[in-house]
């Protein structure tokens, strides 16, 4: 018994200080492992957050691109010459006839003539929607308003060139085509 007890105390003495010395090391390892684990967790969640953000932004980019393309297509369709012609006819406009130019000094180059006098046979290829008849009605008003204001010079030049006795809406349409091709500055 007594030798055993002595051995025990001897071992105890041996173990004691060793255990005390090991403690900081164990702590260090635990701390290292723990912090490693936590930083890995943080890193992973940061990465995941980044990828969520990335896919959200990518989705948004696609959505906006789609929207932009759809709007662009709409604009293109409305701006296509065919669509413009249809709209113009709905507003009661007709293609201008002979080109005529009004110079800054008031002289007229070319022979202005009333538009839509039948010699030029542009016609809309079966305009969709409202027929041309009702669409023509609002036309005389703006044209008549513009007549004295925008084109004071052409009427004397146009009148002797071709005296047209057309039905009611025609005279109101006369100045309109002149307003279109008349290009005061860049014409010459």
């Amino acid at each position: 018994m007594s030798p055993a007890a002595r051995r025990g105390t001897r071992l105890g003495r041996l173990v004691g200080p060793v255990g005390a010395r090991r403690t900081p090391f164990v702590l260090l390892v635990v701390v290292l492992l723990g912090s490693g684990l936590i930083s890995l967790l943080l890193l992973n969640s940061a990465l995941n957050q980044g990828s969520f953000e990335l896919s959200r932004l990518q989705r948004k980019t696609t959505e906006l691109t789609d929207e932009q393309q759809a709007l662009q297509q709409e604009v293109d369709q409305l701006a296509a010459p065919d669509a413009l012609e249809r709209r113009a006819r709905e507003l009661g406009m007709v293609p201008g006839g002979n080109p005529a130019f009004l110079s800054p000094d008031g002289t007229v180059r070319g022979q202005p003539s009333p538009a839509g006098d039948g010699t030029v046979a542009y016609r809309a290829p079966a305009p969709a929607g409202p027929g041309p008849r009702p669409a023509l009605l609002p036309a005389p008003r703006p044209a008549a308003v513009r007549a004295p204001a925008a084109a004071p010079a052409p009427p004397p030049a146009g009148a002797p060139a071709r005296p047209v006795p057309p039905p009611a809406p025609a005279p109101a349409l006369v100045p309109a085509p002149q307003a279109v091709p008349t290009t005061p500055t860049s014409g010459r």
Binding site: P99, G110, A121, T183, G187
Partner: peptide, 14 residues
């Protein structure tokens, strides 16, 4: 028709 339109588009005076 085409010539008239083109002359107007390019603004070519007589």
């Amino acid at each position: 028709q085409v010539m008239e339109f083109a002359l107007k588009t390019l603004q070519v005076p007589p």
